[in-house]
Design a binder for these strands. Structure first.
Lengths: 314, 314
DNA sequence: TTTAATTACGTAAGCACTTACGTAAATATA
DNA sequence: TATATTTACGTAAGTGCTTACGTAATTAAA
């Protein structure tokens, strides 16, 4: 069992399984001793029927957390042993009502002693523990319900990926990336307009030299996102030309670029950031919202596709 | 999942299994996302090989706590996928040495990211917990190693059975039980002697009326054990004629009868209890020992079968 | 009222493990 | 040195669950 030590906490699941396997094995031995004519794995079904008479296959399956197919198979075997009887439901022709037979009830009585002993042994074991296993289970079930392990792993993955993203400033060598990343999304949803080409072909003159900035997101040695901050007046910048490669999604690149723009604008003493977009770009609008932008009504846009304007007061 | 609530702590095992199943399911989803070409259940084998190059099937099996057959099957499938290479051991012709292929090592690198994320997610989850699941697991493993659940259940069973045993005093109606219980074991090992019959046929005159006592153990409405305390002199009693029905073994009936005798002797102001037995009766001798009796050499016995004498100083 | 969707259930097939068994090689024992 | 036992491994068969599919009955929707 070296593996469990090496893998450490990564293998909580496997380790829990091992533990439950040990307990299951022990339970099987217990059945032997008490000479109850019942397969250990039938117990959940049997117990459920002992507590509530007359249940359908589906109801039992739900109660014990297994598939109806499995219950159906178990029921067949228990019927062969004469432990239960099965009758068709009178009001619902699909349903078959299952309950303990006379023999089943006899077994149930025998089983009761065993249950008492198993229960008190389990309770004693749990009570002996310094670290409350029972509450641990409950807590873990709760925590996983709140946020599954899968979601947690994904969050960690994103965290790790984000750390690999570098936000860098404009230099002429990135002009092609600037154009390509923007053309990509514009063509996917709209048409490239003349005003677009002006900015995309010569960002140096139209953005940088006018007191604006352009940021790029680098990931794995490649430029995977960009965003421009164009100066409108001494107190206002426009956030524009944000483009992120579809291949690099899920790494919060838009978020990081947005933050970089906001930081820069603040550093330059701006009072607000303005932007124009289109409501069809739902993820983008959501991102702007998360960044703090609010819907406003500004001057008419030079872009055909713009149908929403937003502003962030710094 | 009503069953788990109803069954309560009795079903720790099942509940642990459910929890580990949830985690396993989540793990499977994680593999999907990271696009590592590896079945989740191969992970233990793969991981072990990644950590230690060149292992035999048995070694892997032991390390991951599964059967060699299972490992053998997994290895075959991994070989088909080109993840591992298998070579015959040079010094040991039975052994086949398995290690990761070049492709396997590539996958291993890919897997590393996934492992990092799973590990930190698991660790975060565990750290979030108020009731330390990790330590709980360790503690439970330890406790079960010390004393298995099976043993604990058996102990509880005995405890429960013992409580059903009543120790009662002699009345004439029990004379037949007294004789029958003793004849049973004497005939099984030795022969009934004349001296036996004297006491067994008329315990009233030979034991009770001479200041002695006889106790009976009642279980389930039946007399299942007996033991006599015969007065030798003002300071000495003899413990004799202890017989327990084989059907009622494992209920500590001998122990309870012995205790009753000792208590009575003490109450009557005796200074010691003496007994004679035979070393062939190993469980009996052990019981006397547990009760505090020590081997002594006393006067010669009227019984042929007696080859050991013991005494308890009160 | 006809049609579609849902529900309850059984059966088949698959999966991932197990135990059981067989073979070959290595090691211990006489 | 011959023989018995142990060890390493593969293969077959079994087990207990699952998913997938089919059927019949019920309920909802058009």
């Amino acid at each position: 069992m070296d593996f469990y030590q090496m893998a450490g906490k990564m293998a909580v699941g496997s380790r829990l399984r091992k533990l439950s396997d040990t307990l299951t094995e022990n339970a099987a031995k217990v059945y032997d001793v008490y000479q109850v004519d019942l397969e250990p794995r039938w117990f959940p079904v049997f117990y459920t029927l002992a507590k509530t008479e007359g249940l359908g296959v589906m109801e039992i399956a739900q109660s014990i957390g297994q598939s109806h197919a499995s219950v159906s198979q178990i029921i067949q075997k228990m019927k062969k042993k004469g432990l239960i009887t099965e009758v068709k439901d009178q009001t619902d022709g699909r349903k078959s009502v299952v309950e303990l037979s006379a023999r089943g009830k006899e077994v149930s009585e025998k089983l009761e002693h065993q249950m008492i002993d198993v229960k008190s042994a389990s309770e004693e074991l749990l009570a002996e523990m310094q670290y409350d296993m029972w509450k641990s289970i409950e807590e873990m079930e709760f925590l996983l319900e709140q946020r599954s392990l899968f979601d947690r792993v994904m969050a960690k993955r994103k965290e790790r990926e984000v750390q690999k993203v570098k936000i860098i400033d404009y230099t002429d060598q990135y002009q092609k990336d600037f154009k390509q990343l923007n053309v990509e999304w514009i063509e996917a949803y709209f048409k490239v307009e003349k005003t677009d080409l002006l900015y995309l072909d010569d960002p140096k003159s139209y953005i940088i030299d006018k007191g604006g900035h352009i940021f790029f997101a680098e990931y794995g040695g490649k430029i995977v996102g960009t965003c421009a901050l164009a100066k409108m007046d001494d107190e206002t910048f426009e956030l524009a030309k944000m483009g992120v490669s579809p291949k690099a999604q899920g790494k919060s690149i838009g978020w990081l670029l947005g933050l970089a723009c906001i930081d820069k604008a603040k550093a330059l003493g701006a009072k607000r950031i303005f932007l124009e977009s289109n409501t069809r770009l739902v993820p983008a609008i959501n991102l702007y919202h998360k960044l703090g932008f609010q819907k406003v009504t500004g001057p008419p846009s030079p872009y055909e596709r713009a149908n929403i304007q937003m502003e962030l007061v710094l």
